[in-house]
Amino acid sequence: MLLEGERDTILKTTSAVLAEHGARREKLIPLLQAVQEQLGYLPKLAMEEIAAALDIPAVEVFGPATFYNSFRLHPPGEHQFKVCMGTACYMIGGQIALDSFERRLQIKPGETTADRRFSLDQVACVGCCSLAPVVVVDNFVEGKVTPTRVDGLILSYESNGQKVEQDSQQTEATNTDEAKGEEGS
């Protein structure tokens, strides 16, 4: 489901990346990393282009793209929630935070809401175990996240984003729980 104009962007980016890094088999992972850095994810089209340029079957590109954790096959959301699943966070409520996000956004880790506003991911330890459980929102770290805070986070990003009203059929969000968002612990 590419948006308008996306096809061109993908083709242009991919050929630029190929020109810069050189179309060599050994460069496959740096190539995929460069495409993802510019587009935010690995579209199927880009992987096919790279396979053609390296003269290898597409499956040899899909393989690494799905094998390694840092590649994502879905476009990232405008705001990204990354729930830390390091040991300390998990033991103290990381799973609870992740469940709360799944429940509110109606997506699973690795996915993006249909309106591409939010995406949800799990990450391994981000190295601030003393703030556990931790959620990284875009590039900011939120410590000691409870389900109440999850509601608050989603709500605050929803009202910050200007597109709230034009998107009526978005995922089941926190509209009904607005009043609760700020209360509690």
Binding site: L28, P64, N69, S70, F71
Partner: peptide
């Protein structure tokens, strides 16, 4: 590119060569 198993020597080398 993010794979725990790549901490293992031979897997690390494979990933540096663009393989799984």
């Amino acid at each position: 590119a993010g794979a725990f198993v790549c901490g293992e020597g031979t897997a690390l080398i494979n990933s540096m060569e663009g393989k799984l």
